[in-house]
Nucleic acid binder design. Structure first.
Lengths: 112, 112
DNA sequence: CGAACATATGCCTTGACAGGAATATGCTCA
DNA sequence: TGAGCATATTCCTGTCAAGGCATATGTTCG
């Protein structure tokens, strides 16, 4: 999960992923479209690959990289736990503020 | 978007976010539960705050941090563009492989 | 086999960032 | 006002990751 975040935290990698959304592409193509040097692209693809975000398929001397859904699905699942809350008031600050105040007051329980 | 990824790429920050999912908490509480030093927690909260993932509410001398839904919603929206694809075959490699081959062959068009 | 091409890897340098420890800031209350 | 908390900030250090460049690897084709 956090591996996915790390991988996507890098701007170029995020772009690569978005670029691959449409269809798999060979390294050179990616480099060209994003105006990056080939070696860096290979390195980024390595990271994305390690994170499982991407998979390769060799065709002659080129390597076609395509997206893998799994990590994104996991990301989706991870978000689920938040979706529940954010509808019925994500910020029930008020409620908590009071509770917190109580807890904090336990310390000064001199007038109990 | 990428700001969100960066913020969540750090393990402790990811934990903080998950911890705050239930309810807002003061800094000290966060530090205690995650077994982190207070200064580091403050720093992480700063980053999360800059990313809009978190918001503060001062109560006496403590500061209660709570989650903000917006960035997560954006993340959700971002995922949308992938959800479309990943059902109907994310990896239409085969299709592309052929197309790619053609394109690649243009160069060697000796037998045309 | 040898040349041309596509991609991967290694080395180096630089900048960003996280943790540690000390300290500053802000608030409350007696 | 001064003491005591809760939190933020600063400075320092070590680590790690990204880009640049050169080069290795692997593949195709004549």
């Amino acid at each position: 999960m956090q591996a996915t975040f790390s991988a996507l935290a890098e701007p170029n990698r995020l772009q690569i992923v978005q670029l691959l959304r449409r269809k798999p592409l060979p390294v050179g193509e990616i480099a060209a479209r994003l105006d990056l040097r080939q070696p860096q692209v290979s390195k980024h693809l390595r990271v994305l690959s390690d994170a499982g975000l991407v998979e390769v398929r060799p065709v002659a001397q080129q390597r076609i990289y395509g997206l893998r859904a799994q990590p994104l699905k996991e990301l989706d699942a991870w978000l689920e736990q938040f979706r529940r809350s954010w509808d019925d008031r994500f910020d029930r600050f008020d409620a908590v503020l009071r509770a917190q105040k109580e807890t904090g007051e336990k310390r000064n329980a001199r007038n109990t």
